Simulated scan of single mutants.
Amino acid sequence: MTYLEHNTRDGLHMAALAGNWIALIAGIAGMRDQADRLSLAPRLPARLSRLAFTLSARQRHLSVEVNPKAAAYTLKDGEPLEFFHHGQAVTAVAGSPLICTIPAAPTLTAPLQPTGREPAHRSKVPPASAT
């Protein structure tokens, strides 16, 4: 039973549940649905071994299972569903799992501070006065 109030005390906080969904599906699974374009770019953090969920997209149900090396997309019903996996167009067909490999994470360079805004090195900071 879902409560409309006192939900924290009763064990279910709807806003927290929505926040978890956003963190997992938009964050880890990389799902975006913008300008009539559904895309997923899943990449699991080192401590997770699996993420599985089902979503409704374009009046169809898509089951997604992600492991560190691949994502399996299974369309549960309806016409084929075209979407993007890590920027590549793919099409899921009902009843037949579509297995897509997860590319290696890009190597990024460390960001630089704007000129004149670099943090002071500890050796150059005057010691605090002991009063």
Rank of each mutant, 00 (worst) to 15 (best):
M1C: 03
T2S: 11
T2I: 11
T2Q: 10
Y3F: 10
L4Y: 13
L4V: 08
L4A: 13
E5F: 11
E5S: 15
H6I: 02
H6R: 12
H6P: 00
N7I: 00
N7T: 14
T8D: 08
T8S: 08
T8R: 14
L12F: 15
H13L: 12
H13S: 11
M14K: 11
M14C: 04
A16C: 05
L17F: 12
L17C: 11
A18P: 01
G19S: 12
G19I: 01
N20L: 15
W21V: 14
I22M: 10
I22R: 15
I22N: 13
L24N: 07
I25G: 04
A26M: 07
G27Y: 04
I28A: 02
A29W: 04
A29I: 03
M31I: 12
M31G: 01
M31A: 09
M31C: 11
R32E: 10
R32Q: 12
D33W: 10
Q34D: 11
D36G: 05
D36Y: 04
L40C: 06
L40Q: 07
A41N: 12
P42S: 07
P42A: 08
L44T: 13
L44S: 12
L44M: 12
A46C: 03
A46Y: 09
A46T: 13
A46V: 13
A46E: 15
L48K: 06
L48P: 06
L48D: 11
R50E: 06
L51R: 09
L51F: 06
L51T: 08
A52T: 14
L55Q: 11
S56K: 07
A57L: 00
A57C: 05
R58S: 10
Q59S: 10
Q59L: 03
R60L: 01
R60A: 10
H61D: 06
L62K: 09
V64S: 09
E65W: 00
V66E: 07
V66S: 08
V66K: 13
N67V: 13
P68G: 08
K69C: 04
A70N: 12
A72S: 14
T74H: 02
L75M: 05
K76R: 14
K76H: 00
K76Q: 12
G78R: 01
P80M: 00
L81R: 00
L81T: 00
E82C: 01
F83G: 03
F83M: 06
F84C: 02
H85D: 10
G87P: 05
G87E: 07
Q88C: 02
Q88D: 12
A89R: 14
V90R: 08
T91C: 09
T91G: 04
A92C: 07
A92F: 05
V93I: 14
P97Y: 03
L98R: 04
L98Q: 05
L98G: 02
L98I: 02
I99M: 14
I99Y: 03
C100H: 03
T101Y: 06
A104L: 06
A105H: 01
P106N: 11
T109H: 11
T109Q: 14
T109G: 11
A110K: 09
A110W: 03
L112R: 10
G116Y: 06
R117F: 10
E118T: 12
A120N: 07
H121Y: 06
H121L: 13
H121R: 13
R122Y: 13
R122C: 08
R122A: 15
K124H: 08
V125G: 08
P126I: 05
P127E: 08
P127V: 05
A128M: 07
A128V: 08
S129W: 01
A130H: 07
T131C: 03
